[in-house]
Write a protein that binds this DNA or RNA. Structure first.
Length: 398
DNA sequence: AATTGCGGGCAGA
DNA sequence: TCTGCCCGCAATT
């Protein structure tokens, strides 16, 4: 009987907690003031979810999202509204050799986005196309942020009907790579340098993380609510988050994420660059590789990290390195007929070096170098996970 | 150079 | 009145 009573109490607690967490709307005059537990920051909120973050949460303070969200004027200064810009895809719908799609992050600024769309697909040089978000009744998914006291209320309306774009750090890194590309020596010289380094080390040189976003049908993305089932104490320094799922846990049982992954989640881009540029970001490496605070704007020759590994040299069978896959300037690499894209990896490393865009190759190398070495504690806002290199590439799965 | 937030203004439902 | 969207501005990164 006592147990039954306890269960009843627990159920009531659960129900009240659920109500506390969910029975509000961002437009309510009065939002819950007594929140027993706040949520862990969600990088990829999707569907009609609500979250209550601590006002101490730096990500929440800055209204971050890994979706490309632009500010939208809703004529309400109390509620910040953002709408999704979708994802930039290749107009040729090209795939890399291992079947990945190109999913770039739309620039937030209109001007920058127009400029971005005039550029070419990094994989096939084809035109880029903005795939608009239409997940909210034909309109873009909207996110709402509202600061109330010690809490920051978040509400998402609509389910993204497009793949995830690369994250902001990835996009920034990609831009810096492109800058470096134009600033440095001509491709022929770079290629030579790559080959020289390879001959010395037996491995690709490490330069910049490759932020190019690719989808990999073979990579299973955990459901959107996966993160919600991680307990705060269960954070192993796993590499699973390298797939783009930020390993932030949410209070157990509070996940407001979608119950099912959207259909396109099977081809979600593989977010391979879990670094971010500021200390409040979950993947910021507090161990600045340079130790001088130059984390954000690294020299193209400095080491950085990501979670994507290159296969041991030479490239193993069955998997052209993502870099090599990306590095085909003329689109589909001419390959022996008959092989599937997944089968084209054999010798890809060298094939890449011999025929692909050496700029990209040069930037490819150290995917998988970074590993999460510590995990958030407390509310997660003060102790972001630390990412440090290096991990043997073999330890990192693609 | 790009992001972010704010706010004016317009149009359609 | 609400919503979506365009635009420009200023501060920040």
């Amino acid at each position: 009987m006592l147990k039954g009573a306890d269960d009843s109490v627990m159920e009531q607690d659960s129900a009240s907690r659920h109500g506390e967490m969910m029975s509000w709307d961002i437009n309510d005059i009065k939002l819950p003031q007594h929140v027993s537990q706040t949520d862990w920051f969600q990088e990829w909120p999707d569907s009609y979810v609500k979250h209550i973050y601590s006002s101490e949460d730096k990500n929440a303070q800055r209204h971050h999202s890994s979706w490309a969200m632009r500010n939208t004027n809703n004529h309400n200064s109390r509620i910040l509204k953002k709408s999704c810009l979708g994802v930039v895809v290749c107009g040729n719908n090209c795939s890399t050799l291992d079947g990945r799609k190109i999913y770039l992050r739309p620039a937030i600024c209109d001007k920058a986005r127009q400029k971005q769309q005039r550029k070419c697909c990094p994989n096939c040089n084809g035109p880029l196309r903005l795939l608009s978000c239409r997940g909210h009744g034909g309109y873009p998914v909207t996110n709402f942020w509202r600061h109330e006291g010690q809490f920051i209320f978040f509400q998402s309306k609509g389910a993204h009907d497009h793949p995830r774009p690369e994250t902001k750090p990835e996009a920034e890194a990609r831009r810096s790579i492109q800058k470096a590309k134009t600033a440095f020596s001509p491709p022929s010289l770079r290629l030579k340098r790559v080959q020289e380094i390879e001959s010395l080390t037996g491995a690709m040189p490490t330069q910049e993380p490759l932020p190019l976003l690719l989808s990999n049908p073979d990579v299973h993305m955990p459901p959107a609510n996966f993160r919600g089932h991680l307990s705060k104490s269960s954070h192993e320094p796993t590499l699973s988050s390298c797939s783009g799922q930020f390993p932030y846990p949410r209070t157990a049982g509070e996940d407001g994420g979608p119950k099912e992954a959207p259909t396109w989640s099977r081809s979600l881009p593989q977010h391979i660059l879990p670094m971010t540029k500021s200390g409040h970001d979950p993947f910021r490496s507090d161990a600045d590789p340079l130790g001088d605070g130059s984390y954000r704007e690294k020299s193209p020759l400095t080491f950085s990290g990501s979670c994507l590994s290159l296969p041991p040299y030479p490239a193993p069978q069955g998997g052209l390195s993502p870099m090599a896959a990306v590095a085909q300037p003329h689109g589909q690499l001419s390959l022996p007929p008959g092989g599937s894209e997944e089968d084209r990896g054999g010798g890809g490393h060298q094939a890449c070096l011999s025929c692909c865009n050496s700029d990209v190759v040069f930037n490819l190398t150290h995917y998988g170098d970074w590993v999460q070495t510590s995990l958030p504690s407390g509310n997660g806002s003060d102790s972001p996970p630390l990412w440090q290199h290096k991990v043997l590439p073999q330890q990192v799965s693609l």
